[in-house]
Design a protein around this nucleic acid. Structure first.
Length: 737
RNA sequence: GGGCGAUUAGCUCAGUUGGUAGAGCAGCGCAUUUACACUGCGAAGGUCGGGGGUUCAAAUCCCUCAUCGCCCACCA
C-alpha cells in the first residue's frame, strides 16, 4: 500500500531526487517544452555577485521568480528563465586582494595578468557554489543558457555598446572633478557614494587680517587651494566687493589670489554667507570656477595627501594638514568661530573611505545630449526622433510601457532621473571589461584615439588600462544574455522580457541602467513589469550581516524544514516592496502544512484505491463537476487565485491556497466525506462520486500549489492514479487551456 | 531641505475596486485506539496611532497631528 505516506513527509529524501527528474526532463529549457507552449514568457535572473555564497535575500528572490515562471509554464507559455552571475568588479577584486593579503601577496607583485588569473579562479569557484545553492531552492532555470557578465559573449556586447555610444557622442572623455576613493584607488560614480551623517566642526575665519570677508568651512586644509570667495548676488553685506581680487601673500605658507564672485547657489544664511571656492576639490566649486573663468589649483593627491603647497603641508595627510591649518589660523588670530555641526560626509560604498573630490581624466556617459534614435519600438517615440538618454529612461516609465510594482517606486525613479548627472564609467581597477579604447602617443599633443571591437593592427597603440563600471555590463543583461549584438532567434523571441524581479536597493544602479541601455541600443524596453521585493530582515528587524553575526544560511533552513516550507515563509502575506521579517516559526508553520498535505494525500489514496486509474476528462467526471457545489466553490477560488497570480499578487494567492487546503478541504470536505464513506447504505455510485470529488480537488490543489511548493506537489503528483499523467511542472493550470 | 513608507489581536504581518475586522506563532478550554499530536473543535483577544471631514457605509478616500523607518540632495 502507500507505504511512503505512513511516515511524515521527508523533504531531504525528496527534493534532490525531484530536481534531478526536472533537469533530466529538459523542460527548464523552453526549446524542449511540449507543443502547446507557444507564446513566450521570459525573465532573466538578476545575476548574483561572484563574491561568495547566497543569503536569504537571494532565497527570497529565487522563490518569487521561480513561482512566477512555474505559473506561466503551467499556463502554457514558452518559459525562459535565464541564469547568470555578475563579476561585480570592485567587490570581487577587493575580496581577492584581501584573500591574497592573508598569504602576504600584493596584487602589484603578481602583475595584472597573474592577478586576474587568481580573480577568475575565485570567481569560477564562487559561481559553482552559487549554482548548486540556486538549484537547492528548486529554481527552474535554463542552465543551458548560463551567462556571466564577464564572459566572451558579454564582452563583445560591452565593446559593441561602448563603440556605438562613442560614435553617437554619448560617451566622452574629460578632465573634471570626480569622486575619488583613496582606499580603493579608483573613481566611483555618484550612485556608489553613501552619505554618513557625522559631527564636524565648522570653522569661521579670514584668509588674512586685511581680507574683508570671513568664510566658513569644515575643511580648512582645502582652503590653500582656493581661488575665489562666492557670495549670494543679493547679499548687501558683500556687494561692494564682488568683482575685486585680493592678493594674500601668506596663507599657511601659500600665496593666494582670491576673487570675490557672486553665485545664486550660495546661501546667505549659512555661516557667514560667504563660501571659499576650491575649484579642484569640489564639484560645486568647479562649476562656479568654470562660470567665472577662475583658475583651478590641485592640492590633494590620490592618496589624500597635500601637494603643490608649502613645505609645512606638502605630503601631509589631509587630516594632519587640517590641524596644521587650524593651528596656523589661531596663531595668527584669524580664527573667529568654531562650531559643532551635523554634516553629511560622502564615503565609498565598498571601502567606506571618505571620498576626495579631485580632477581626473575619465570616461563619462552623457545623459543629456540629444541624438537621433535609429530604431524605435518605444511607445511615444518615433524612429529617428531626437532624444537624450534621460528622455528615454523617463518616457517608458511615464507611459507605463514599463510598469513598476509597487506603484510608489515610480516616484522614486523619476526623482532620481531628474537629479541624474553624467555617469562616470571608468574605474582604475584591473578586474572587469577593459575599456575598448586604444591610444597612440598617449597624453601627448598628437594623441590619437581608436575606439572599437578589436585592437588596431600596428603595435604602437596601447589600450586604456582602466576597466568599466560593473553596471555598464549589467545594463546590457536582458539582451546580452540572448546573444546581442548578434541577431539571434532568442533575441527575437524573448526580448523584451516579461518580468524583472529585483530588490529596491538596485533600482537605480541596475533597473534604470537596463532601461537606458536597452532603449538606446535596440530601441525597445528591456522588460514589461518590474517587481520590487523588500529586504529580508531578522526577527529583531535588523538587516542580515556578517558584522552583526545574525547571518542565516538558507541551506541550514532547508536542511531542517525543506525548501518548500522556506519558500512559503518568504512568500505568504509579503506584499511587493515590503520588507520580510524572517522567522523560523513561520517556516515551521509551512513545514507543518507540507505534512498536512502529505496526510491528506494518504487519506485520499487509502480511500480511493478501488477506483484504479482515473481519466479526469471523462464524461462521468464532467457531469459530477457541473453539478457539485464543492467543486463550484473550488473553481471560484481557483479563478480568484489565477487572477492574483496574473497580477503578481503571490502574497495573496499563496495564503488563499493554504487556507482553502487546510480549513476548507481538510477540515470540512474531507471530514464530511468520512461519515459518508463509512455509511453502509451509501450506493456504489454515490461512493464513487465522493471519491472522485476528493481526488479531483486534490489534483487541483497540487496544481495551484505547485508554483509555491514545487517539490512536495511534484512528489505527491507522481503517486496519484491519473490517466495520461505528465510531470506536474508542465501540467495545465486549471481552467486554462 | 525634498520625497516615500509604516502605525490593525500579546508578537510578526495580510486585508486587491469603501460593504458585518483576518492569518501564522504564542496563550486558554475541551477532545483524541484519529489520514495527520507536524491533530481536531471551541472560546477569548482589536475604540484598525490621535483628531477632523466625505459617505447610507471608512482599516480602506480627503485633511491634520504624532511616533518610527527608508530614500534622495553639490549648504560650504
Amino acid at each position: 500500500m502507500h507505504e511512503k505516506f505512513l511516515k511524515p513527509y521527508n523533504p531531504q529524501e525528496t527534493e534532490e531526487k525531484i530536481y534531478k527528474i526536472w533537469e533530466d526532463s529538459g523542460y527548464f529549457n523552453p526549446d524542449n517544452l511540449p507543443e502547446r507552449h507557444q507564446k513566450p514568457y521570459s525573465m532573466v535572473l538578476p545575476p548574483p555577485n561572484v563574491t561568495g555564497i547566497l543569503h536569504l535575500g537571494h532565497a527570497d528572490m529565487l522563490a518569487i521568480e521561480d513561482t512566477a515562471i512555474r505559473f506561466q509554464r503551467m499556463q502554457g507559455k514558452k518559459t525562459l528563465w535565464l541564469p547568470g552571475t555578475d563579476h561585480a568588479a570592485i567587490a570581487t577584486q577587493t575580496k581577492v586582494e584581501k584573500l591574497l593579503a592573508k598569504e602576504g601577496i600584493k596584487k602589484h607583485d603578481l602583475g595584472r595578468e597573474k592577478f586576474l588569473d587568481k580573480v577568475n579562479e575565485f570567481a569560477m569557484d564562487s559561481q559553482k557554489t552559487i549554482i548548486s545553492q540556486t538549484k537547492r531552492m528548486g529554481s527552474s532555470l535554463d542552465w543551458s543558457r548560463l551567462a556571466f557578465t564577464l564572459d566572451e559573449q558579454r564582452n563583445l556586447a560591452v565593446k559593441t555598446a561602448f563603440q556605438r555610444m562613442y560614435e553617437d557622442g554619448l560617451i566622452y572623455r574629460k578632465n573634471k572633478v570626480i569622486n575619488w576613493d583613496p582606499k580603493g584607488q579608483t573613481v566611483i560614480s555618484d550612485d556608489e557614494i553613501v552619505y554618513e551623517e557625522r559631527k564636524t566642526t565648522l570653522y569661521t575665519f579670514k584668509y588674512s587680517k586685511d581680507f574683508p570677508i570671513a568664510i566658513s568651512t569644515t575643511r580648512p586644509e582645502t582652503k590653500v587651494g582656493d581661488t575665489a570667495v562666492a557670495v549670494n548676488p543679493n547679499d548687501k553685506r558683500y556687494k561692494e566687493f564682488v568683482g575685486k581680487t585680493f592678493e594674500i601673500e601668506d596663507f599657511c605658507g601659500v600665496k593666494l589670489s582670491i576673487k570675490i564672485i557672486s553665485d545664486r547657489e550660495v546661501d546667505p544664511e549659512f555661516g557667514t554667507g560667504a563660501l571659499g571656492v576650491t575649484p579642484a576639490h569640489s564639484k560645486v566649486d568647479e562649476k562656479m570656477a568654470l562660470d567665472n573663468n577662475l583658475p583651478s589649483k590641485e592640492i590633494i593627491s590620490e592618496y589624500a595627501c597635500m601637494k603643490n603647497v608649502g613645505e609645512n603641508l606638502n605630503g601631509k595627510k589631509v587630516k594632519e594638514a587640517r590641524e596644521i591649518v587650524i593651528g596656523w589660523l589661531k596663531e595668527n588670530n584669524l580664527m573667529m568661530e568654531e562650531k559643532e555641526i551635523e554634516h553629511n560626509v560622502s564615503t565609498a560604498e565598498r571601502t567606506s573611505a571618505v571620498i576626495e573630490p579631485l580632477p581626473k581624466l575619465q570616461w563619462f556617459i552623457d545623459v543629456n545630449k540629444k541624438f537621433k534614435l535609429p530604431h524605435s519600438k518605444i511607445e511615444g517615440i518615433k524612429t529617428s526622433e531626437e532624444v537624450c538618454l534621460k528622455d528615454l529612461m523617463k518616457k517608458v516609465v511615464e507611459t507605463k510601457e514599463v510598469k513598476i510594482l509597487p506603484d510608489r517606486f515610480n516616484k522614486t525613479y523619476f526623482n532620481w532621473i531628474d537629479k541624474l548627472q553624467d555617469w562616470c564609467i571608468s574605474r582604475q581597477i584591473w578586474y572587469g571589461h577593459q575599456i575598448p579604447v586604444w591610444y597612440k602617443n598617449k597624453d601627448k599633443s598628437d594623441e590619437e584615439v581608436h575606439v572599437g571591437i578589436e585592437a588596431p593592427q600596428e603595435n604602437s597603440w596601447e589600450q586604456d588600462p582602466d576597466t568599466l563600471d560593473t553596471w555598464f555590463s549589467s545594463g546590457l543583461w536582458t539582451f546580452s544574455t540572448l546573444g546581442w549584438p548578434n541577431k539571434t532567434n532568442d533575441l527575437e523571441l524573448y526580448h523584451p522580457t516579461d518580468l524583472l524581479e529585483t530588490a529596491h536597493d538596485i533600482l537605480f544602479f541596475w533597473v534604470a541602467r537596463m532601461i537606458l541601455m536597452s532603449t538606446y541600443l535596440i530601441g525597445e524596453i528591456p522588460f514589461k513589469t518590474v517587481y520590487i521585493h523588500g529586504l529580508v530582515r531578522d526577527d529583531k528587524n535588523r538587516k542580515f550581516s556578517k558584522s552583526l553575526g545574525n547571518a542565516i544560511d538558507p541551506l541550514d533552513i532547508i536542511e531542517k524544514y525543506g525548501t518548500d516550507a522556506l519558500r512559503m515563509s518568504l512568500l505568504v502575506a509579503v506584499a511587493p516592496g515590503q520588507d520580510v521579517k524572517f522567522s523560523e516559526d513561520k517556516v515551521k508553520a509551512y513545514k507543518k502544512f507540507s505534512n498536512k498535505l502529505w496526510n491528506i494525500t494518504r487519506f485520499i489514496l487509502d480511500n480511493t484505491q478501488a477506483l484504479g486509474e482515473i481519466d479526469f476528462d471523462s464524461e462521468e467526471l464532467r457531469k459530477i463537476r457541473s453539478s457539485n457545489l464543492q467543486i463550484e466553490e473550488l473553481e471560484k477560488i481557483i479563478s480568484d487565485i489565477t487572477s492574483d497570480m496574473e497580477n503578481y499578487r503571490f502574497y495573496l494567492a499563496s495564503e488563499k491556497i493554504y487556507h482553502y487546503t487546510w480549513h476548507e478541504f481538510a477540515d470540512k470536505i474531507i471530514e464530511e466525506s468520512k461519515s459518508k464513506l463509512s455509511d453502509p447504505n451509501l450506493s456504489d455510485g454515490q461512493r464513487k462520486e465522493t471519491q472522485l470529488i476528493l481526488l479531483y480537488i486534490l489534483q487541483n490543489i497540487l496544481k495551484i500549489l505547485h508554483p509555491f511548493m514545487p517539490f512536495i506537489t511534484e512528489e505527491i503528483w507522481s503517486e496519484l492514479p491519473i490517466k495520461n499523467k505528465k510531470l506536474l511542472m508542465i501540467e495545465n493550470w486549471p481552467n486554462s487551456n
